[in-house]
Computed example of a mutant assay.
Amino acid sequence: MAIPHRIFGSGSRDGWAAARLVGIDLARGLAVFGMYAVHVGPRDGEGVVGSVMDFAFGRSSVLFAVITGFSLILITGRNPPKSTLAGRQAIAKIAIRALILLALGEILTYVNAPVSVILAYYGVCFLLVLPLYRLSAQRLGLLAAVTALVLPQVRFLLLKMLGSGSSDPEVFTLLVSGTYPALTWVPLLIAGMAIARLDLRTRAMHLRLGIAGVALAVLGFGGSWLALHLMPSVSAELANLQEHDVSPHHWWMLDVDRLTASWLWIASPHSETTFWIFGSAGCAMIIVAACSLAMDALPFVRKLVSPIVAVGSMPLTAYLLHILGIFMLGRAHSLSALFGFIVVVSAFAVLWLRLFPRGPMEALMGWIADRATRRPLARVSDRQ
């Protein structure tokens, strides 16, 4: 079964070999299952299960963000970027997708969705990174590093100066104080855009991508560990927070008034620090490289992972299905609940793709974007 490459309704192969596109969908499918693990999987597990659950927390969403940046470049053209009418259409389609995601995110939040909805934040990030679509891999990589170094500190200062609460303006929530603040998630999308600009037609480049990911992970998580061990006063402040029954996995929920500059040295999930961005982005790069290498070097594995690839080709549909499932069934937080979600959504994705080329939500979003951009932009082209 040939699985088409899609991200929230995109549809450009851009000259890539099918195996490499399947590798991207495989990585995205794993991100979906990681998200399921966070939302319905067992908590406080031990052994292998506990390690897998801990790894998924805060990293599945980062993997999504990196691949989303990657896919934005596929839509706007890799080498070279699209120009003239095709370029304007690609930009307009992404902008419309961003607005749809914003609307969906706000609706789900309004109806009290049972999870922290990321869609609106993604919509904001789409709009923020869209002007960068023509930059080279080197410039995008440099910009990703600079924003990862600067923006977490900017966000921290804004939180300390302006505070945070339920009465925050929506723009401030989406950019600064929310669960997935755009200020600290934009570097992840830019990193994905930089990866998409690389010449990934060879295994050697995938290996380099994996090695670069390892280096970033060591820099982020290892750098945080080293800093905390070299600065006893910082470690003491953070230990004091833990004495108040705040585990590292829940530090992101702390009241902003309790945060000090010591926070900026940690790399815990959703801490929104420079160390966390570097470390988590490195993990995402490792997974993308490993999936692409596996699909390229081991074609027989493709059939085994085809259900995961199918889910990865319709991420918005899979995301909304799991929210609907939690609405209907509640959050059991068990291995059986996680297994059930994975099996049901995988079966749906495989069966759907036997009949249609795209997931239902991806097709709908693509149709809306096509209808909204084709005629207006064509008229602009005719006048020119």
Score class of each variant (00 low, 15 high):
residue 113 A to Q: 03
residue 130 L to K: 00
residue 120 A to K: 04
residue 198 L to Q: 04
residue 100 I to G: 12
residue 103 A to P: 00
residue 146 V to A: 14
residue 138 Q to F: 06
residue 164 S to M: 10
residue 115 V to F: 03
residue 127 L to G: 08
residue 106 E to S: 13
residue 122 Y to K: 06
residue 177 S to Y: 14
residue 136 S to A: 02
residue 207 L to N: 08
residue 140 L to R: 00
residue 104 L to A: 14
residue 123 G to P: 00
residue 148 A to R: 03
residue 100 I to V: 15
residue 109 T to W: 13
residue 186 V to T: 14
residue 119 L to I: 07
residue 135 L to Y: 02
residue 150 V to P: 11
residue 180 Y to F: 15
residue 168 D to Y: 15
residue 172 F to R: 14
residue 140 L to T: 02
residue 154 V to P: 05
residue 195 I to P: 02
residue 117 V to Q: 02
residue 177 S to M: 13
residue 194 A to I: 03
residue 131 P to C: 09
residue 182 A to Y: 05
residue 101 L to G: 11
residue 186 V to I: 15
residue 190 I to S: 07
residue 123 G to E: 04
residue 153 Q to G: 12
residue 130 L to I: 14
residue 116 S to V: 09
residue 153 Q to F: 14
residue 151 L to S: 09
residue 176 V to Q: 07
residue 160 K to V: 08
residue 141 G to T: 08
residue 142 L to D: 03
residue 171 V to E: 11
residue 156 F to L: 01
residue 173 T to W: 15
residue 199 D to E: 14
residue 137 A to I: 01
residue 175 L to N: 05
residue 120 A to P: 00
residue 159 L to T: 07
residue 118 I to T: 04
residue 204 A to S: 15
residue 202 T to P: 13
residue 190 I to Y: 04
residue 116 S to P: 10
residue 165 G to A: 07
residue 132 L to H: 01
residue 152 P to M: 01
residue 147 T to F: 07
residue 182 A to D: 06
residue 175 L to R: 06
residue 121 Y to L: 09
residue 154 V to A: 02
residue 200 L to T: 13
residue 181 P to R: 10
residue 134 R to Y: 02
residue 171 V to K: 11
residue 156 F to M: 02
residue 185 W to H: 09
residue 119 L to Y: 01
residue 178 G to N: 13
residue 206 H to F: 08
residue 121 Y to E: 07
residue 113 A to Y: 00
residue 136 S to E: 01
residue 187 P to K: 06
residue 160 K to I: 08
residue 162 L to C: 12
residue 132 L to M: 10
residue 148 A to N: 04
residue 203 R to P: 12
residue 100 I to N: 12
residue 109 T to Y: 12
residue 109 T to N: 15
residue 191 A to M: 12
residue 118 I to G: 01
residue 136 S to W: 00
residue 191 A to K: 06
residue 161 M to F: 15
residue 100 I to H: 13
residue 162 L to S: 12
